[in-house]
Computed example of a mutant assay.
Amino acid sequence: MKKYILKRLLQLIPVVILVSIFSFLIIQAAPGDPINNYVKSGMTEEQVEQVRKEYGLDGNIAQQYGRWLGHVLQGDLGTSMKQQRPVAEMIGERLPNTIILMGMALFLALIVSIPLGLWAGLKKNKLADNVISFISYLGISIPPFWLGMVLIIIFALKLKWLPTGGMHTLNVDTTGDLLWHLILPAFVLSLNNMAVFTRYIRSNTISQLEEDYVVTAISKGTSKRKVLFHHVLKNCLLPIITLAGINIAGLVCGSFVIESVFSWPGIGRLAMEAVGNRDYPVIMGFTMFSCIILVLGNLLADILYAVADPRIRQGGGRRDN
């Protein structure tokens, strides 16, 4: 098991390096000079070059990337050009808020999709299956930002049941108030995963119900419900473990839009503000953080998969995706 984890860790290193290179090149290829936003009128050429040097924007792309990578390896993600604060500190302040939102979204996706997927697979091609499948297709197709705005209009502005955004009511800092503000953004962020998980569980439930061990158990008098929850469920959850790990990064990227729509003070909203301000150090910091979350999510999924499937744990081999 230790060799398996070490092997997976070593495979992740080149991925992170390649992502950093491509992200850096894409940002550098953006039109315009970012330093223009921070140069005051009346500055001499020498002063402009000094500002450029302070932000590590002097020299060619290879030199800039080398300096940036050297700082990152020391734990320094740079300094925000807009707020003049360390990027790592800014991300650290907002990260707990994003984790709360992501955790609730993933929790909602799992507790809703598992029973729906099992029920749809058990009732294959019947009314319940058709209704659940239709709702799943809607969940996959609806753009989250559009749904977020529609739900704000309906539940916040029209019905006034829920807040329009933010994380807390002014001068109120209670768990209940936090959960009240979480309802809309967590639901919107979870909807796509909820739909995808439901489809996967349905598909796996149908295939598992056709396996010999299920047919044998039912023929011996075991109820379908008992077979479903005691045997089929475990095998259906294996691919969901992988999907959940992979979609952790998807939740981070999804929060990029959702946090802006609902004014949620997380790292996604921070990144959106950085894009508007062309604050390149913050953009790179967010990109690399998302990459690391993705690879760690994949690693966590691999470990959980190996724990759940004895064939991988015993052989230490590579699972098929």
Rank of each mutant, 00 (worst) to 15 (best):
F286T: 07
V16Y: 02
T287F: 08
I293K: 01
I183K: 09
R8K: 13
L157A: 15
A120H: 00
K7I: 07
D279Q: 11
L170T: 12
P265C: 05
V19L: 10
A306H: 02
D58F: 11
G268D: 10
I240D: 00
E89A: 10
G268S: 08
S223P: 03
L95Q: 03
G250E: 00
N36D: 15
I283W: 01
A195F: 13
P86E: 01
I153R: 14
G42K: 01
L233E: 07
G297Y: 01
I283G: 07
I91W: 00
R278W: 00
M43P: 07
V172H: 10
K220E: 02
R225W: 12
F197Q: 14
P281E: 01
I26S: 02
V227Y: 02
L251D: 00
Q74I: 11
K2H: 15
V215W: 10
Y280C: 08
S41A: 15
L304N: 07
L299Y: 09
D76N: 14
L159C: 07
L178I: 01
P86K: 13
N235C: 02
A195D: 05
A120T: 04
L101E: 03
N192G: 14
P34K: 12
Q28V: 14
I183G: 07
M104Y: 10
L251K: 06
K234P: 03
N193T: 10
V257T: 11
P96C: 08
M43R: 04
G78V: 12
V112Y: 04
G268Y: 00
R318N: 13
I248P: 06
D212K: 08
D302C: 00
E273C: 03
H231G: 06
R313G: 04
V232A: 08
G121N: 04
M43W: 06
V112P: 09
D302V: 09
I114R: 04
N193K: 13
E211Y: 04
F256K: 09
S260D: 07
L243E: 00
G315H: 10
S223K: 12
L251N: 03
L110S: 11
S203T: 14
I17F: 11
I27H: 10
L110T: 15
T44P: 04
V275D: 03
K124D: 01
G103E: 08
F107K: 12
T174R: 14
G70V: 05
I17L: 13
R225G: 08
G266P: 10
N130H: 12
E259I: 09
Q64R: 15
P281I: 02
N247Y: 11
A301T: 03
P281T: 06
L25A: 14
G59V: 07
N60I: 11
D33W: 07
G66Y: 14
T198C: 13
N277I: 00
G268M: 03
E89C: 02
K40D: 13
H230L: 10
I153E: 06
R278D: 01
K126H: 11
D76V: 10
K40E: 14
W119Q: 13
N247F: 15
D58V: 05
V48Y: 05
K40Y: 09
G66F: 15
A306Y: 03
D279L: 00
K3A: 15
L159T: 04
I27M: 14
L189K: 08
Y38Q: 08
L116F: 13
G42I: 06
K123D: 08
P14E: 09
V227E: 08
H181T: 01
T287D: 05
G254E: 05
V227R: 11
